[in-house]
């Protein structure tokens, strides 16, 4: 299928480029399709191209030493992945996998360099995109590396479980927990799992059961 210039025009990477520049960039873009479950990038492997998601959803994740998967980001249409390793020349920081049938637009590293040299505006755009990514990653790293998310989450669960006893049933989504704990939605899933591993709660499909209240209170820093 022909590469859609309209799609490229809307990407932050190419904002401010006129039609002829977009046309020129289009020549460097290749299309790649993947089925659900297909690996698109492997942690630490070298990365030769930058990918934009045109349709479908891509999961960017890391695998911990004990084999557990941590989702860092879901990439939706119009967003890209692989941007950091492509420029740094290092290996992939994370793995990527298609979560649905996906269509990607890719640009090879050397072609990207040509584009940047021809259109310095693209370099400015990329600096902006990467700066934003750094901000997000720093926040994520903070939340992953310090225990305060588990602590805050423990406090929220305790508050709600008390409410539930009083009012007969309280419900919370992971999105709500994330807003209350002041963290990313992706971090909540991991924090809940760690509370479960520590034996404070048990996750049963659509229920979170507080199995050891004292332990949860200790994690919340209440005594």
């Amino acid at each position: 299928m022909a590469i859609q210039t309209e799609f490229l025009r809307k990407l932050p990477y190419f904002s401010g480029l006129d039609s002829s520049a977009i046309e020129a960039v289009t020549k460097y873009v290749f299309e790649k399709k993947a089925e659900r479950g297909e690996r698109l990038a492997l942690e630490e492997e070298p990365s030769h191209a930058l990918y934009f998601v045109v349709s479908g959803v891509v999961k960017v994740f890391r695998t911990s030493a004990d084999g557990r998967e941590q989702i860092l980001r879901l990439i939706r249409p119009g967003e890209c992945f692989n941007e950091v390793p492509v420029f740094s020349g290092s290996g992939n920081l994370a793995s990527a996998q298609a979560m649905s049938p996906v269509v990607l637009y890719g640009i090879r590293k050397k072609d990207l360099e040509t584009i940047i040299q021809t259109y310095p505006q693209v370099a400015m755009n990329i600096i902006q995109v990467l700066s934003r990514r750094i901000q997000e990653l720093v926040m994520l790293v903070e939340d992953f590396s310090f225990r305060h998310v588990s602590g805050r989450l423990a406090k929220i669960l305790l508050k709600y479980v008390d409410h539930a006893v009083a009012t007969g049933g309280m419900k919370l989504t992971q999105q709500e927990m994330a807003s209350m704990a002041g963290t990313a939605r992706e971090v909540v899933g991991r924090a809940l799992k760690s509370l479960e591993t520590e034996g404070a709660i048990r996750i049963e499909r659509n229920r979170i059961v507080v199995t050891d209240r004292r332990k949860l209170e200790a994690i919340a820093g209440l005594y």
Binding site: L157, A164, T173, N206, R207
Partner: peptide
């Protein structure tokens, strides 16, 4: 699995958990 909630750009779909004590 709550993936639909995670992917939704507008927060239109959600998977609430009941919080209970054992």
């Amino acid at each position: 699995c709550t993936m639909c909630e995670l992917v939704c750009p507008t927060g239109a779909i959600s998977c609430p958990f009941e919080i209970v004590i054992e």
